[in-house]
């Protein structure tokens, strides 16, 4: 990025940005988001008719089931990586005022 303009905002940005960032260990939770990609994007896992449930072939109920699993995974990641978790309470208050 040597050709880019001098961006004097950088230094200040890093300082103020630090408090909001999620700690590296907590970022591991993001790995949960990866699981759903192979689970639903590799059709050879589930392009089968059996086992059926209530007459619904595996191909169809497997994918519908994954809608729920994927939503739960996202929810878990959300709960464990909440950006405001460690932020000062004032952030929340200001936000509320601004957007009201």
């Amino acid at each position: 990025m040597a050709e880019g303009p001098v961006r004097s905002g950088d230094a200040a940005g890093t300082e103020t940005g630090g408090r909001r960032r999620v700690s590296p260990l907590r970022r591991l939770w993001y790995l949960l988001l990866v699981v759903q990609f192979p689970a639903v994007l590799v059709p050879s896992f589930y392009a089968r008719e059996t086992p059926m449930v209530w007459g619904i072939p595996f191909f169809y109920w497997y994918q519908l089931l994954w809608v729920i699993i994927a939503a739960l995974l996202t929810l878990i990641v959300y709960l464990f990586t909440r950006e405001r978790g460690e932020a000062s309470p004032s952030t929340e208050r200001v936000t509320a005022e601004v957007s009201s």
């Binding site: 880019g4 940005g13 103020t16 940005g17 909001r20 932020a87 952030t91 601004v98």
Partner: peptide, 15 residues
């Protein structure tokens, strides 16, 4: 020219 700073991408609605 890039008018953003790394912090811009993490900004909460604090302002």
């Amino acid at each position: 020219a890039d008018a953003t700073t790394p912090d811009d991408f993490e900004e909460e609605a604090a302002l």
